[in-house]
Nucleic acid binder design. Structure first.
Lengths: 325, 325
DNA sequence: TTGAAAGCGCTAACAG
DNA sequence: CTGTTAGCGCTTTCAA
């Protein structure tokens, strides 16, 4: 008993495909109650589910939204995915998720797959600065929203107000009397908007804080770890506060602090993302989170009003401070 | 410039659709070099990408694998997803990910969507014990592999050897001289295989350890937290060791220990999953992980030899012990 | 109320 | 080497 089709249902019900099709589209007004019941019964029995690929061939019936994340392990990504999925996935909209794994080639493949699968909407965490990828989406009339990173192509984009987040971080740390602040970042690739913007904001904030000594440490995970070790070992200068520009940096920092038995020595750590560690380490003075619900609302808005909303939208962060709860 | 189709390409190249179709299927043997070049050029220029929905309508061309996870935040799930995706996603196989969010209704919807989208293979972390859901997959000839939980329906299933994992945990803790061991679990719903099997293994291991006093604490996250607090506050009896039956329990435990300033008081914690916290807390004596690569190999094997492999496959855990590295 | 026919984008026989 | 034709599963005119 291979795939059952509309033809089978029609034959079993003793009607034509047309009637069954009407039934499938909840168009009962021309149908006798008897016919309707009969079709309903047969569909139930056979577990018939129409193929959306066939339905969409001539007339678009089902909207498919493809969320392409760059990193399945980042909490920001999974929160966006979960929220979007929860709000949108339904009989009418199918939400499918893909993972580009921070790989430019993979991203290209996924975009091509999206097009070939006749996807209608894409929400993407871009991993390349190759405009060609994104032009493909546009050419195929796919409504697109970029998340977290400014696209090389004109389009709707949502991201954190990085400037505000870091400015506030510095202000908080200074207000608490810190004179030596270290800033941790992954490699500063030019098109990785959050990294670049956050560091810029840090440097800018520092220019007006003359009494504070800043240190910037950046590099791959391994490099970052090494540099941090060097810093912590050099007994002459150890910062009193750290800014982890994302949760990966935060974890590296916490490991290093533990290894050098610096835990409990009263540091002030501020981090962007990584809220789940907030409750576990007193050293984390403040965690900065993305306003997920708000961002998703805007994403949905942009998907539906693609022409009006070809801009960049920045969102004020949410601050979790120690003792506030 | 809406969707460009095979017809457009054929017209632009001055040939029939057939030739273009042959080109698309890498079937060049009947084609003049000139024709081939012309088609190639036009496809490049127009960024034409054929629709797999149309290709698959009559003759199956592209395989679609749908991974349905129950919890996007569990590291086991994301690791499986990433590994599977890395190994399989290609021109010939599209891997799409969905999230049932531990919701039975959602799972049903996703299964129906998979069928309607003409998915060929499903890898699912089941969330219900409703056999009907899974029969739907079978009826539609979808190759299915269940992960982590025994299905209510006969089929291929891969999961951790929970018995071995917990037996080994207890043995380790006892060998280290622990006389009071507390076991933490989320609610013991009957069809949540890992929870049930692990607790059974714990109870069984305890029957042969007469000198050890076991405590079992289970419940929802909130309940677990409360019970743990009660336990830690009652100064008369505090365990010397804990077994966290998964990473959610581990986080609750670590929070509770911190809140009561028990950190650094030399507990022995063993946990299933949650390796990322291993380096951050000395109290974690051992972390038990799933052998992801091995499991994925078996999943792929089962997908491809569906008829031979309708059994349950259990995998020996990987143990990370403090000081081993 | 219902059915026949055309067509969506694509592939594969089969003719030329 | 290339084109014609039929058909995949479904929806929608349009006619009965």
């Amino acid at each position: 008993m291979g795939q059952v089709t509309i033809k089978d249902i029609a034959e079993m019900a003793g009607v034509s495909k047309t009637i069954v099709s009407q039934y499938l589209n909840n168009n009962y007004k021309f149908m006798s109650a008897k016919t309707k019941d009969k079709i309903e019964k047969i569909i139930k029995e056979t577990n018939y589910i129409p193929k959306s690929s066939a339905r969409n061939l001539k007339f678009k019936k089902i909207t498919v939204l493809n969320i392409i994340v760059a990193n399945l392990e980042s909490s920001f990504s999974t929160q966006i995915v979960q929220q979007m999925d929860k709000r949108l996935n339904s009989e009418k909209i199918h939400v499918i998720i893909s993972n580009s794994a921070d790989d430019e080639k993979k991203e290209r493949l996924l975009i091509e797959q999206a097009i070939s699968q006749d996807v209608d909407q894409v929400v993407i965490f871009p991993v390349s600065n190759n405009p060609e990828h994104y032009q493909l989406l546009k050419r195929n009339n796919i409504a697109t929203v970029y998340v977290d990173r400014l696209p090389s192509e004109k389009g709707a984009c949502v991201l954190l107000d990085n400037q505000e987040a870091i400015t506030e971080s510095v202000a908080s740390l200074v207000a608490r009397g810190n004179k030596q602040i270290a800033y941790l970042s992954l490699p500063l690739v030019e098109y990785l908007t959050p990294r670049v913007e956050r560091l810029q904001a840090f440097n800018q904030a520092m220019t007006s804080e003359e009494s504070v000594l800043p240190t910037v440490i950046s590099g791959s995970e391994a490099t970052l770890k090494k540099r941090l070790e060097t810093l912590l070992k050099s007994k002459n200068y150890v910062p009193t506060a750290f800014i982890a520009s994302n949760d990966t940096c935060l974890k590296i920092l916490l490991r290093a602090l533990k290894e050098y038995h610096y835990h409990g020595k009263d540091f002030d750590i501020v981090t962007v993302d990584g809220l789940e560690l907030f409750d576990l380490f007193d050293d984390i003075y403040m965690t900065i989170e993305h306003p997920i619900a708000e961002i998703c609302t805007k994403i949905i808005d942009c998907l539906n009003n693609q022409t009006d909303n070809q801009q960049v939208f920045r969102f004020s962060p949410i601050y979790y401070r120690r003792g506030e709860k």
